[in-house]
Simulated scan of single mutants.
Amino acid sequence: MFEPMTLDAETSALVTLETANQVAILTLNSPASRNALSLAMIEALSGRLDAIARQNDIRVVMLQAEGPAFCAGHDLKELTAHRNDPDRGRAFFEETMRACSALMQQIAGLPQPVIAAVDEMATAAGCQLVASCDLAVAGPRARFCTPGVDIGLFCSTPAVAVSRSVAPKHAMEMLLTGVPIGAEEALRIGLVNRISADGARAGAHALARLIAKKSPQAIRFGKKAFYEQREKPLAEAYKLASATMVENMLAEDAKEGVAAFFDKRAPTWAEK
């Protein structure tokens, strides 16, 4: 049987959790490091998501950050310190990339939708984190970049998520130049869904509350199928989507939702 990940108090403090109206609000809470994705930060966020995945009363997850940056990417001080290891840091670099890649895939595999709320800068793996979320809301001052080329390190892993969120030429421009883009440009190329004049947190929370009112069963079916079909050839994608629709139609929420539609009343969704 799978054992849920447990976090010590120090690690838990790196990513705080609060819940409101069936929305889990996760906050990256290491402003001094600009919320860099150290191994401890990755472990903390992964542990929080691991617990949320098993909570049927949580319908949506919102990811925000404290401090002057949403996320500054990998912790360069931590990585640099391991260059003095006997293997010049290879083992630590491999572990960091493995853990970070697993985290990004964990977000895609989470039953609940995840919304990034970005009010400041999201850099490199921080931009990857935004692109890995199902939805993203930007505040007017938000900025995004993949500046690895400026320090001799192409953002190859951020490219995986960014290139799946925006058109290839927009992704390559970000990756090849490292130039930051603002909220308006991020919206234009599809990196974010909307800009909230009241700030990303307010906009993301409004979006989360809207989604939380929908059928949780339908959303769980749909999110899983969305990511699976996207990587398949057209015929296989339709085969998978059709099978998902059949299972979804047989679920309790679909029966209730259709009945409520005909009865002209609000549906009462199942808890799981």
Rank of each mutant, 00 (worst) to 15 (best):
Leu76Met: 12
Met62Ser: 09
Glu3Ala: 08
Ala186Leu: 07
Ala254Ser: 15
Ala171Gln: 12
Lys223Leu: 14
Phe226His: 14
Tyr238Pro: 09
Ala108Ile: 10
Leu207Pro: 07
Ile58Ala: 04
Ala65Pro: 02
Ala81Leu: 14
Ser30Glu: 07
Tyr227Cys: 05
His82Asp: 06
Gly257Asn: 04
Ser242Val: 03
Arg209Gly: 03
Leu79Val: 08
Val179Phe: 08
Ala206Trp: 07
Met41Leu: 14
Ala235Asn: 08
Ile181Lys: 08
Ile42Gly: 00
Arg230Asp: 03
Ala117Asn: 03
Lys223Ser: 08
Ala9Leu: 14
Gly190Phe: 03
Gly47Cys: 03
Cys127Leu: 15
Ala235Ser: 11
Ala241Thr: 01
Arg220Ala: 15
Ala225Tyr: 00
Phe226Pro: 02
Lys255Gly: 04
Val23Met: 08
Ala44Thr: 06
Ile219Leu: 05
Asp8Leu: 09
Ala218Asn: 13
Arg188Ala: 15
Lys232Glu: 07
Ala9Ile: 11
Gln106Asp: 10
Ala142Met: 02
Leu28Gly: 01
Phe92Gly: 00
Gly178Glu: 12
Glu185Arg: 14
Arg220Ser: 13
Ala200His: 13
Met121Trp: 13
Arg209Val: 10
Ser163Met: 14
Gly47Tyr: 04
Pro4Gln: 15
Lys255Glu: 15
Leu129Val: 02
Glu228Trp: 04
Ala183Leu: 08
Cys145Val: 06
Ser38Trp: 01
Gln217Lys: 10
Pro68Gln: 09
Met1Arg: 07
Gln64Ala: 13
Gly182Val: 07
Glu94Gln: 09
Gln112Pro: 00
Met5Trp: 12
Leu207Tyr: 12
Leu210Ser: 08
Ser215Ile: 01
Leu234Trp: 12
Gly73Asp: 09
Arg209Ile: 11
Asp119Phe: 02
Pro158Asp: 02
Asp198Tyr: 05
Pro180Thr: 03
Glu236Ala: 08
Pro233Arg: 05
Asn21His: 14
Pro113Arg: 03
Ala159Val: 10
Lys169Ile: 10
Ala108Trp: 09
Val114Tyr: 00
Ile151Ala: 09
Glu10Leu: 10
Leu26Ser: 01
Phe92Asn: 01
Asp8Gln: 05
Pro216Leu: 06
Asp87Val: 00
Ala183Phe: 08
Val246Arg: 14
Asn56Asp: 13
Leu153Asp: 14
Arg98Ile: 06
Gly203Trp: 02
Asp253Lys: 02
Ala208Tyr: 05
Ala161Arg: 03
Phe154Met: 11
Leu7Asp: 05
Asn29Ala: 15
Lys214Cys: 12
Leu176Ile: 07
Ala36Val: 07
Ala138Trp: 00
Ser38Cys: 07
Glu185Gln: 13
Glu185Pro: 04
Glu10Val: 10
Ala259Met: 13
Asn84Cys: 09
Arg83Cys: 13
Ser165Trp: 07
Ala122Met: 09
Phe144Val: 05
Asp8Trp: 09
Ala36Phe: 06
Pro180Tyr: 06
